[in-house]
Design a protein around this nucleic acid. Structure first.
Lengths: 333, 333
DNA sequence: CTGTTAGCGCCTTCAA
DNA sequence: TTGAAGGCGCTAACAG
């Protein structure tokens, strides 16, 4: 009968059962260690019998590597990219690490959580929103790689991945102009936030290139509700409405259609940014800019891993191309 | 100038700087230890200066508590409940723990990930999908509390939280019947899966109560696309279509409207389950059953914590009431 | 290739 | 209230 204790078996238990030393067991579960085939077999059998797996927590103590990557997300991040955590998790696992999630609701709580984040000795961090400067300082001092996702900071230590908003919005504006847009209203993201500012700036430049005047610019949270309310407040509208993200744009479409009695795209053209699945649904058919999400998450993880392995450089910023997805919401013809 | 090493300061460093022993530093950062006020002050000052926080990883080695709760999610889980991870994370943090996420894509990968999950010595697990029996066995043997989210197993060890599908679907069917439904088509979830079966069973019972015949039942993945395709395949439809979740229902609505030329709810009434935000958008106005998501996540975390603290019992199953949200998609008047 | 020894950072006896 | 000593499970450095 099974009288094994409920506790997890240790390398010592396996060693005893297999008749070898602890170090030998250890070698069996590390890569690049030499071990005679027969001992390996005996150890594996013993481990199997005991349900043994090396305690990675204990291992991390000595290797100074937890193999844990911390991911910092806020509510807004998750709503804009619903399966960001899923994709990041998969990517991190593929890199042989695990994802420890810290859910935060702003830079202030981020600062408060900092000691706790450090206390878990994560190997690296991926931040889904702009972290407070203090956090970046600490990371730099402790040499903890940190990648800002869709954000940027010039502190010299943090890396970033994001989209080439300039090129993306230039393509969008070119399309709008070709389709007959002559005057834009803009619902930008929250005033704070680098993405928001970057997108707005890029849009302004693109509009200037085509001599497309921007009538009004308002700021709103990255949500359907905020978009709907902002649109109502903006009425009467110009012939085209550019939104900082798709959630806002969907709210804008419903505001136009159900609150203002406008027809899309006959009365007004509307565009978003992110290419969320809902935008493809027939009632919306939203023209938008698709971020290469897979590539962004993969790159973010890779940048961390490269630094951990001594290959990558800190302070590196990578931009990926977004692609224009033209759908019915801007097709006047 | 700051010549401190990039590595994290240790209790030894703090002890040296404060002129006390390591044990004293340790006591300073634990609760319920007695310490003279002046030493506490000196230690806190030293810790502050060094940016010290106790290494929780090391602590967990000796306390046998990692304060980490593992969360197992699959793609389907996340799509059905986009901010489940967010809510769980917040709840877990509120309980003083951290969330380690394992993203899996099915029972088989779950089995493969098992040693790795164990290797991190999580204090408890929350599973967003039906875990393989082997995993439940191991948890039971190791006394690792595990809570199944919207799932159930009678292995005697695992706990579960979920919705009272019987009551919920009875309420829905009562509403449908009162609104003139006379015959139902059903798009159930994937054939496997306890939720799927439980909801279908509950629906059948409720329908029987009202002498409402169920014309046809098909199975589909929990997604918009699957719902849309299933609906097209189902045509011609009965007067009412009940879907296993909202994503399917939204796909069904668009299939009816854009592929089959039906008007909702004049030609057909459609209902979902989950109350995702998109269902409230004007083009859909979906009647659905709202799960008390906050309560579910809070309960899940609480059940884990209670067991960790020796209070809760294993093998406990809790059902929360879902509430009927009536919107336009079933309002014939 | 293998075993021995020491120590990662912390907490927990035990004595003082 | 405090310090010294030992050990959590593992890996690294060294002998053999």
């Amino acid at each position: 009968m099974d009288t094994s204790p409920p506790r997890q078996a240790t390398s010592y238990d396996v060693a005893t059962l297999a008749g070898v030393s602890q170090s030998t067991v250890s070698r069996c579960f590390r890569d690049g260690a030499s071990l005679s085939p027969d001992k390996r077999e005996r150890i594996e059998a013993a481990a199997q019998a005991l349900g043994y797996a090396p305690n990675k927590i204990a291992r991390s103590l000595i290797t100074q590597r937890s193999n844990i990557i911390g991911v910092l997300v806020g509510e807004a991040t998750v709503h804009a990219y619903p399966d960001l955590l899923l994709k990041l998790g998969a990517e991190i696992q593929a890199a042989g690490r695990r994802m420890l999630v810290f859910t935060l609701s702003g830079p202030d709580t981020a600062a408060a959580a900092l000691p706790d984040i450090l206390a878990y000795h994560v190997d690296g961090l991926i931040a889904g929103f702009a972290p407070p400067g203090q956090m970046l300082d600490v990371c730099a001092q402790r040499r903890i790689p940190i990648v800002l996702y869709n954000n940027i900071s010039d502190d010299g230590w943090s890396c970033s991945v994001g989209c080439d908003d300039t090129a993306a919005l230039a393509a969008l504006v070119a399309h709008l102009h070709a389709n007959g847009s002559r005057r834009l209203d803009v619902i930008a993201g929250p005033g704070s936030g680098a993405v928001s500012r970057s997108r707005l700036q890029a849009l302004r430049e693109a509009a200037a290139t085509y001599d497309l005047p921007i009538a009004r610019t308002v700021h709103a949270a990255y949500s359907y509700e905020a978009g709907r309310i902002a649109t109502r407040a903006l009425a009467p509208l110009a012939d085209t409405l550019v939104c900082a993200n798709d959630a806002i744009a969907l709210g804008a479409i419903d505001a136009c259609r159900y609150d203002l009695g406008l027809s899309i795209p006959l009365d007004i053209a509307i565009a978003g940014y992110d290419n969320i699945p809902e935008g493809a649904w027939p009632p919306y058919s939203l023209t938008t800019l698709a971020q290469p999400l897979e590539m962004l998450t993969r790159t973010a993880v890779r940048m961390i891993v490269e630094q951990l392995e001594g290959a990558g450089a800190s302070g590196e910023h990578r931009l990926m191309p977004a692609s224009l997805v033209v759908r019915g919401s801007t097709r006047l013809g």
